[in-house]
Nucleic acid binder design. Structure first.
Length: 299
DNA sequence: CAGAACGTGTCAAGGCAGGA
DNA sequence: TCCTGCCTTGACACGTTCTG
């Protein structure tokens, strides 16, 4: 092994700032020293990791991006090993960046983090919410180590572990003519205006439900906000289909919504923890996984 | 233990590209 | 064309490790 952890740390910093001089200032070393370290790393690997743009900073090569993912993971393990050495026999500690699909976050993260804090008080979690594409990209770039996601159309470079499944429901205002029904078929909604939760992957999932039922939904509004979907439904702008049910049927503006089971056969959505395939989790991420399993599987 | 070798840092100078 | 910003290279310093 020719490279050093210091070189990896330098590379991660340069990639982060896109500029050798800026990275050097943050690392408290001189710019030539940093430039030399990166050059030595590239030389030992035999692969260019950065593209130098004279007077315009640097960018990461495709090979460099793949290498960075592994480098960040390795640095995470190295950090953990250092902490382990300092506190042999002590509990899980350090920092963990957890990604989460934006609509899942408010439903589960507050309680998950509370449980995690109770089990591992020395573990400090940083959150990175986003759409599924963003969450996946962060995992593949090594910016997050583990994420809570819906298991739909995920990148094949990610490994997932299913935690639970959630069934889709029709959402209508409490004064809607279907609100008193115990179930509803999607065909009964064919002429009703729909409010679509318009997030990548989610929109395709909702459309597939209607496609399988042979129904073409009349989309009245699209929004990327889960709560705006509920708000619009609560004020009678249309119905929606959602998988997650908040404990309160009140919307932000005081409207009231009703969740009704769907009569048609539907595909449940799997909630899963995702991580880059082939990368060994740190003990911190393992601790988060264990808390998720207890939370979802054991109740 | 002393000198050589090595690794890693700084400073200074030079080259390149973009912008005024 | 000149200025500015930024990267690379060369010379050198200093601390650590290796070797006889």
């Amino acid at each position: 092994m020719q490279y050093t952890l210091k070189q990896l740390r330098y590379l991660v910093a340069v990639a982060q700032y896109g500029n050798v001089s800026v990275a050097a200032r943050h690392l408290f070393i001189s710019q030539p020293a940093l430039s030399t370290a990166i050059a030595q790393l590239e030389s030992s690997l035999g692969v260019p990791l950065l593209i130098r743009h004279h007077a315009r900073g640097v960018s990461v090569t495709p090979a460099g991006r793949k290498f960075l993912t592994r480098a960040r993971s390795l640095l995470g393990h190295a950090n953990e090993l250092e902490l382990l050495g300092r506190e042999l026999g002590d509990s899980v500690r350090g920092e963990l960046i957890v990604g989460c699909f934006v609509t899942l976050a408010p439903f589960f993260l507050p309680r998950l983090l509370k449980e995690l804090q109770r089990s591992h008080p020395q573990l400090h979690v940083h959150l990175a919410e986003g759409a599924l594409d963003q969450v996946q990209a962060a995992l593949l770039a090594g910016e997050t180590e583990i994420s809570l996601v819906y298991d739909i159309d995920l990148d094949r470079q990610l490994a997932t572990e299913e935690l639970t499944r959630v069934r889709p429901h029709v959402l209508v205002a409490s004064n809607h003519h279907l609100a008193t029904h115990s179930t509803v078929s999607l065909s009964a909604l064919a002429t009703e205006p729909m409010i679509l939760l318009d997030l990548p992957h989610s929109r395709d999932y909702f459309r597939s439900l209607f496609f399988n039922a042979g129904v073409e939904p009349v989309i009245r509004h699209r929004t990327q906000s889960f709560e705006l979907v509920r708000g619009l439904v609560g004020q009678g702008h249309g119905y929606s289909v959602l998988n997650l049910q908040p404990r309160s049927n009140r919307t932000y503006d005081g409207g009231r919504v009703i969740y009704i089971p769907i009569e048609d056969p539907t595909t449940d959505l799997a909630i899963a923890i995702a991580r880059p395939r082939g990368l060994q989790l740190t003990h911190r991420a393992e601790a988060f996984s264990a808390v998720c399993r207890r939370f979802f599987v054991d109740g």
